[in-house]
Amino acid sequence: MKRWPAEWEPHQAVWIGFPGNPEEWPVGLEAAQLEVAAFANAVSDRGAGETVVLVCRNKVDANVAQALVAPCVIVVTESFGDIWLRDTAPIFSIDSESLSGRNFGFNGWGGKYQMPGDQDIGQRLAKRFDLPIEDQGWILEGGAIDGDGAGRLITTEQCVLNANRNDHLTKEQVDQHLCEAFGKQNICWLGDGLIADHTDGHV
């Protein structure tokens, strides 16, 4: 039985991208680092047994992060571009009580922000933590979908069916792909998602 857990369900771990690229953060880099480190510390302090992994793009950033987070936060180094691991890392479902990752294609939110490392960060993180993943062969960002953990999924035509993502797929084909990836039976399609956002309408 395949099931995609809801975001509010207990996690085994959470991966958080740490800001470090001065080209992406020409202003406010230090403040962003402090805020992300505080978030990592807050999650690790909940006492729910959740592992917190702070992913840094190089050793210099890792040293900065290590000085800001609690000892229980795991700091690792993996090259990436944008900190939005929600969109670039694998999306995990539960297959017969075991975690199984779905690794989708990523093209910089429709070609707008293409950065080295974002295309394969999912594969590298899964390999580092010895987690199984399956390549899906089409483009999907984690922010483009949401689910309730009980077989219902919501997404938007504006993003997932955008010509800059999956121009070779029909709505019916994407519907089938989503069901195959997450075991979903009830998919709700919205026309548009977030307004004035570079994601082209994440849900």
Results as ranks from 00 to 15, higher is better:
residue 22 P to W: 04
residue 47 G to P: 05
residue 108 G to M: 05
residue 158 Q to M: 04
residue 85 L to P: 03
residue 62 A to K: 03
residue 185 Q to S: 14
residue 116 P to D: 15
residue 82 D to W: 03
residue 21 N to P: 04
residue 120 D to P: 06
residue 4 W to C: 02
residue 169 L to P: 01
residue 167 D to C: 12
residue 9 E to M: 08
residue 202 H to R: 06
residue 122 G to F: 06
residue 80 F to W: 09
residue 110 G to E: 02
residue 80 F to Q: 03
residue 12 Q to F: 12
residue 92 F to T: 08
residue 63 N to H: 12
residue 28 G to Y: 07
residue 121 I to Y: 05
residue 83 I to A: 06
residue 172 E to V: 15
residue 144 A to C: 12
residue 24 E to R: 13
residue 174 V to W: 03
residue 88 T to G: 03
residue 1 M to Y: 11
residue 173 Q to C: 00
residue 190 L to H: 13
residue 89 A to P: 00
residue 169 L to H: 01
residue 42 A to W: 13
residue 65 A to W: 03
residue 80 F to R: 04
residue 95 D to G: 06
residue 40 A to K: 01
residue 15 W to D: 09
residue 110 G to N: 01
residue 59 K to F: 13
residue 71 P to W: 07
residue 121 I to H: 01
residue 49 G to F: 09
residue 46 R to A: 07
residue 81 G to A: 11
residue 190 L to R: 10
residue 118 D to M: 08
residue 108 G to Q: 05
residue 66 Q to S: 15
residue 167 D to M: 10
residue 163 A to Q: 13
residue 1 M to N: 12
residue 34 L to G: 10
residue 139 I to Q: 07
residue 175 D to E: 15
residue 197 D to W: 08
residue 81 G to F: 02
residue 202 H to V: 12
residue 145 I to L: 13
residue 21 N to Q: 08
residue 13 A to Y: 03
residue 93 S to A: 15
residue 29 L to K: 04
residue 90 P to E: 11
residue 42 A to F: 12
residue 3 R to H: 11
residue 14 V to T: 13
residue 75 V to A: 02
residue 154 I to Q: 08
residue 117 G to N: 09
residue 60 V to P: 00
residue 161 L to E: 01
